[in-house]
Structures are given as structure tokens and as C-alpha cells.
Amino acid sequence: MKFPAFKYLRPSSVAEAAAQLAEHGDDARLLAGGQTLMPVLAMRLAEPEVLIDLGRIENLRGIALEDDALRLGAMTRYVDLERSALVAEHAPLITRALPYVAHVAIRNRGTIGGSVALADPAAEMPACMLALGAEIELTSTEGNRWIAAEDYFLGLYETAREDTEILTAIRIPLAPERRVGFYEVARRHGDYALAGAAAVGDVEDGRIQGLRVAMFGCDDLPVLAKTAAKAAETGVLDGAWLEADVSPTSNINGEAHIRLAQARVAFRRAVTDLLGVSNG
């Protein structure tokens, strides 16, 4: 299981990386933390001609508070997010979800940008971005553009990122009063979720408003459960309407209806977590 041969490029700026990506297009793969890409290469499920290592681009890494948003450099590692007081204060959903992401050594190298770029439907971070209403910065030789997470995830490992674009940053709007909730069903600690839900919303007088619940592990992509969230705002917390939002298919983890049942539980438990009630 050795990596296939490739050419290795190590740009020192985003501009250089973008130029290299423009030159090689879909023959190239961007190397961020490598925690998912490298296994793919090891199994030779992909054999890119060129690997562009973003690891030496200093300004891609870091967490900064802007006027109306928390900005996360794409190459910021999970471990940095986990330990960040800024993240804990302004995007506690991420702090809450990170312990569920794989294991220590993976979090020491894996990056937020890598995870969002890959868009694994069962991964925690893409769903958190969706729930948080994050914006994603894509940069190419043509310049940069910001795209809302809702418009970014398109299908199974399919995103709005063009082959010539680099995911360079993520912006999470500040919302001081917002509460968060999180739950995932996984067979082992650190596994990808069988079903998971990441929730944000406001609670006033015990009623939820502005609820956004992103489901993961139960469809081809992370999905905002809009119908179920609306129902939850009226007090229907059990995810009864979830099938209007997600369509799990039968797979090795179970038949579709079983997976939907697990998704409902994840939804309800994330919302009750948000409400501050004990799960059960």
C-alpha cells in the first residue's frame, strides 16, 4: 500500500499555489492535513500526477476575530481549533463537535479546510459549517469568492469548488446569543457517524427560534433539516418531519428506514442538547 508516484510542489503563497493549480487542473490534488487524502492515495483510489502541499503557506493557518465573523484559515488544524478560546467563545459548536472527530493524532494534523473541501457526508465539520451558516472562501488565479456553506455542498463529495480553486478560509458569522447542540450515533468513538446532527438556535422562554440543524451521515451530503427544524420550533422535537429533509439509502450500516430512525434520534438529541435538557 505505497503511494503512487506523483510530482510534489510546495508553494509558499496562495498565489503560487493557485498558479500551480491553474496549470495542472484536475491532474493535481491539494494536500492539506493529508489525513484523508493519504489513505486514498495509499489504496490507489486516486493517482494524481501532482500533489500541491499547502503546508508551507503561513497565512493559511490561524484563527482571527473580525468585525462580524470568526475567520478560520483553511490550514488551521483541528487541534488549534480545539484549544482556541476564540472558537470556544464564538463558535462553540465546533468546540463541542471536535472531540468526535477521529482521534488525537489525526486532529493534530487534520485541517478544517481539508475536511470542508473533501465534504465527507458523514464528517462532523462540514455539517457544523452548514449549521453555523459559514461562508467559504475559494481562491484561484482569477481572484477569490465567498460562498455560503448552503450553496457549497452539492452532492456526494461534490462541492461548488472548481478544480482551479483553493479553499482558503472559512468565516463564521458572530451570533452571541445562539445556543448549540450536537449528537452523533457512532459505533466506536471517533468513527464517522452513522447519523449525526449539529444544531444552532436561539432559545427564548423555552422556545427555539432560528433553529438550524445540519444532519450528517444520513445522506449523500450534509443537509440542513429545514422541515424538521421548523417543526421543532413549534415543539415537535422528535424529528418526525426529517424524511422531508434527508433520504438515507440502504447500505452496509443498515436499511434505509433504520438509518432514518437513527437520524431522527440524532436530531432530537441534538435539539434537546441545545435546549440544555439531558438526552434520553
Binding site: 510534489y8 510546495r10 489525513q35 493519504m38 502541499d53 493524532a105 493534530n108 494534523r109
Partner: peptide, 25 residues
């Protein structure tokens, strides 16, 4: 493929999967 942890070494002070890190990195 990064699952078992047998290759864990320290890189810049942090436990790291050797098999998921290129030597050039």
C-alpha cells in the same frame, strides 16, 4: 491508512501518524 496508530511518532511535539505524513512534509 491512518487507523491503527502503530506508526505514531512525534512531529514538532505532536503525536502524528507517520503513514499519513510524507517524509518531505
Amino acid at each position: 491508512h491512518g487507523v491503527c496508530g502503530a506508526c505514531t511518532v512525534r512531529v514538532d511535539g505532536a503525536a502524528t501518524r507517520g503513514c499519513l505524513t510524507l517524509a518531505v512534509q
